[in-house]
């Protein structure tokens, strides 16, 4: 009897867990879809911007913008983008493993972290964190992006860093996400990805309002913000993809476990019935 009751409670709790993981999977799917739409929305903007910048850079000639300057020496900053929460499979582990390996090789690197998981990881290991951002997701507000941009610009321009890198999770598809490292600064104009639209008028024909330097400066710092925005969204999409998969696996496990437990429950019940009948039969036989 006791065993039956035990199994029953277990079935109930497994069922509950299954329901929760299923709901979490659905939430992750919905968020993933929205994040992807945002990436798609931001893409034409980035492409158009790259086109304009390329056009402009060819005209501006040698007048180098501070964010474009390539330095031989100087410190490196690494921005690590993780999630705020777990329950998303190996998402955080993958990023942090790579980040940790990089930090071991280049201990002088200045750290910037996005997300609670990354902050906690490096704090536990006593790495100094220059700046941390928490609860950026799922909103990914422009104000936050601009804050990050300003910080990175300060590092690069005022403190003469050699390079600023970003470690994020690239969203390849719902099932594959890969930790990847990119260089945020300095910006290499030749490597910008635009449509490469060639126009039929000469490059020098542009009029500038107010003037080319101001425009270049605004454009480049706006471009940097767009890039950061993209990395954040990409990372968030990956997180949601990973979470979706993790929750799907958990739901599957829960239903498998439930099937197993139900079988066990039925067996126990059958055993009890058999035992009772045997007792009755035995009792009847004793009377005769």
């Amino acid at each position: 009897m006791a065993q039956i009751k035990e199994i029953k409670t277990r079935i109930k709790s497994v069922k509950n867990i299954g329901q929760i993981t299923k709901a979490m999977k659905m939430v992750a799917s919905a968020r993933l879809k929205r994040a992807q739409e945002r990436i798609l929305g931001a893409r034409p903007y980035a492409i158009k911007m790259a086109d304009v910048m390329k056009n402009l850079a060819s005209k501006a000639g040698e007048e180098v913008h501070p964010l474009l300057s390539v330095r031989e020496e100087g410190k490196t900053a690494l921005m690590v983008i993780t999630a705020d929460r777990g329950l998303c499979g190996s998402f955080n582990t993958n990023i942090l493993r790579q980040a940790h390996a990089y930090m071991k090789e280049n201990p002088q690197t200045v750290l910037l972290t996005v997300g609670k998981k990354g902050r906690d990881f490096f704090k536990r290991r006593n790495y100094p964190i220059r700046r941390e951002w928490l609860s950026v997701f799922p909103r990914v507000a422009m104000e936050t992006v601009l804050e990050m941009r300003d910080e990175i610009e300060t590092l690069f321009i005022a403190e003469k860093f050699k390079t600023v890198k970003v470690l994020y999770t690239e969203f390849k598809s719902v099932i594959t996400q890969k930790a990847a490292m990119d260089t945020l600064l300095p910006i290499k104009v030749e490597e910008l990805q635009g449509e490469g639209q060639k126009t039929d008028y000469e490059a020098g024909d542009y009029d500038f309002e107010p003037d080319i330097e101001t425009i270049m400066e605004k454009l480049i710092s706006q471009y940097l913000a767009t890039q950061i925005h993209r990395y954040l969204l990409e990372s968030f999409s990956s997180e949601m993809g990973a979470k979706r998969n993790a929750m799907e696996a958990a739901s599957k496990n829960a239903s498998e476990m439930m099937a197993k437990l139900t079988l066990e429950f039925n067996r126990a019940r059958q055993a009890m019935i058999t035992k009772e009948i045997a007792e009755i039969v035995g009792g009847a036989a004793a009377l005769q």
Binding site: V52, D205, Y206, D207, F208, P210
Partner: peptide, 17 residues
Amino acid sequence: EVGEFGVMAGHMSLLST
């Protein structure tokens, strides 16, 4: 940024904030 402006077809090339 320096003032509002209108654009019609055939406008000269311009880049403005």
